[in-house]
Design a protein around this nucleic acid. Structure first.
Lengths: 355, 355
DNA sequence: CGGCCGCGTGTAATCGATTGCATAACTAAT
DNA sequence: ATTAGTTATGCAATCGATTACACGCGGCCG
């Protein structure tokens, strides 16, 4: 009774041809005569045949699957990139395996396992806070395994890279605050050892320098891209007597946590402080106030990274020189930034708790 | 020069045993003598062998991979469930393939393709707005393919299911508003043909009934779980003269869109209206005002669903009767709900634009 | 007419691991 | 000492598809 799933043998028998012909009819139809092709199609229809990918993978040493490794699926920034990757991969007939990257060097083993065991044909690394050591290890196999790094630059690594113009975008975000008359500008940092964090800080500093200013160390608040860290930073902000009138936050999530912390103590944005974020998360236009932010082209980034990786998988020479695509972010001005109040003392007008 | 990746043959040669022994040393070490085991380990170390999953899959007809199909990866609700699934799967040695579900019946083909082609051993379906037709088609193969449905109930389908207590939770959310003295309570609906939407509406109605009230049709605002739909609903709310004093929103995202729309017209929550959401997204505690909401145990849900599916994959009889796990949601009271103002007329105190 | 080419197809080897069966070497029991 | 049982290992078939090679056939050219 146990009817097994039909194999290519069954199709061949039914169509009165050899398995070789069936295989060819499927993967290179032009090599098969029209009549045979029709018989094979019919046989496939009748038997309900579906190709066994394991058999094909074994023979062809390719899994038609890419591995996406990312630090946190829950992060909406990554999940929308993942979404774009999945769409592109699907369009090109590839499956997408996801891998969370939080196991320390255990992770390396898992990555290797997937890549060397013929489960995935290539790696798309989306790591915003990557451990350099991990990459060194992977790099050892880079000649043979197609790898594309997205979001994050890994200098001199020779990896193909798709990223956004973090330094420049951060500079423009900060410039926006300067244009509004702010001079006392702070920064809510990203994670300490993260390249993206550093780039955004660099852009921030560069914009200040353009106006003859320099970052004030006490106004660089430690953060790590999540809401809690922004919330915590707000407490430090509040404990200061000399406060900045504007903050450039390394991303929207921390900006939101920060604003939420300030609000609990009656500091109202943009009346008392201007804040510009980064990413343009879905919630940004609906936050209170709607967030001014740098919109990263997340969909394009995911799509192009997937495209590049699959090109590479299908022809390891395709890309030639290590690719480096830089996408431009765009300032979206909403209501969390405003022209500075006349006095510009850094004293906020109200420190009362609002209820 | 092209050094190929080592196979089990290479290991066998190096360790001076047969491939059978190497295989056994790997998958059932107790069947191999201690000395041999050591030699094999050493050989593996020296050759740098990694198992070729395609070969194993072909022979064992199992891919050590599960397929997670979901309607929208970007939705933070799903992405955090996906995260939990990935963790559980990783812990049990499984990979996770993700599949977006927006292609209509093209999607069915892809699902089938993955499941029948031995690329995935089972399906975890997370669909909050599922097309019944799609499921019928899949159900035809359900006897042979392990399937677990999460988040969404599919009545009489015979699928194993892990979900939360939507009706009950919605009732408690609404009860919370009643307890605060509200009597004029509206609902921001989820997508029309979605089971979850309907369950939440049912719970809403049941709570009202418990206080001798009934849903007012004009106060059920069409929505579909996203911010834009909540935002649009706000416009309809504003155009009414007889307004509810409180809203139970089908989820946090639409609640946020709704609040954002109201705020643009100076209607302040919770002063003028109370709103309770559903999900407890990451942003909920940091929104302005922090959102009162039903917290769904997303991590537990993802974990348990993955657990159940993998149990099923490893032993199709394991679960016996169709499993049905219902997890309890928890009301988290924050600041978006307040005791009703004395007059309770539904007239908001201020309709001016705030600036 | 003979040789060459190209097309369509079949034969059989191959990819890498697993596993049923056979076997050999011991141990224990009768 | 023979038998039975146990343990450790090897042999070879097997999973399902792909593909190098060979073959037969018809057409074309010289």
């Amino acid at each position: 009774m146990e009817r097994k799933t039909p194999t290519i043998q069954d199709v061949a028998r039914f169509a009165n041809v050899s398995t070789a012909t069936v295989s060819r009819a499927l993967s290179s139809p032009e090599k098969v005569s029209e009549g045979t092709r029709a018989r094979v199609s019919e046989a496939i229809r009748v038997t309900g045949y579906t190709l066994n990918q394991a058999g094909r993978s074994l023979r062809q040493r390719s899994a038609k699957t890419i591995l996406v490794a990312l630090p946190d699926i829950r992060n909406p920034f990554f999940s929308s990139i993942l979404d774009a990757i999945e769409r592109e991969a699907a369009a090109r007939g590839y499956g997408v395996l996801v891998l969370n990257l939080y196991f320390g060097h255990e992770t390396i083993r898992r990555l290797q396992d997937f890549l060397l065991s013929n489960r995935a044909d290539g790696l798309l690394l989306l790591d915003g806070s990557v451990d350099t050591h991990l990459l060194q290890t992977l790099a050892g196999q880079a000649e043979t395994i197609p790898i594309v790094v997205a979001c994050e630059e890994i200098p001199n690594s020779g990896f193909h890279t798709v990223l956004t113009d973090n330094v420049d975008a951060a500079e423009r975000a900060t410039q926006h605050l300067l244009d509004l008359g702010h001079r006392r500008i702070g920064h809510l940092l990203g994670p300490e050892h993260n390249v993206v964090s550093r780039e955004r800080f660099a852009g921030f500093a560069r914009a200040l320098a353009g106006s003859g200013l320099a970052p004030v160390p006490e106004w660089s608040f430690r953060g790590n891209f999540d809401m809690e860290s922004g919330f915590a930073a707000a407490a430090r902000f509040l404990s200061m007597t000399e406060r900045p009138t504007a903050i450039f936050a390394a991303n929207d999530e921390s900006a939101i946590g920060f604003l939420s912390g300030l609000r609990q103590h009656g500091i109202i944005c943009p009346r008392d402080i201007s804040v510009v974020g980064f990413d343009d998360l879905g919630v940004a236009p609906h936050y209170v106030p709607p967030l001014t932010t740098m919109r990263q082209p997340r969909e394009a980034l995911g799509r192009m990274a997937a495209e590049a990786l699959i090109d590479l998988v299908e022809d390891p020479e395709a890309l030639g020189m290590p690719l480096r695509i830089v996408l431009r972010s765009e300032l979206v001005v909403r209501e969390s930034t405003a022209r500075i109040a006349r006095d510009g003392t850094g004293k906020t007008r109200s420190d009362n708790h609002s209820s």
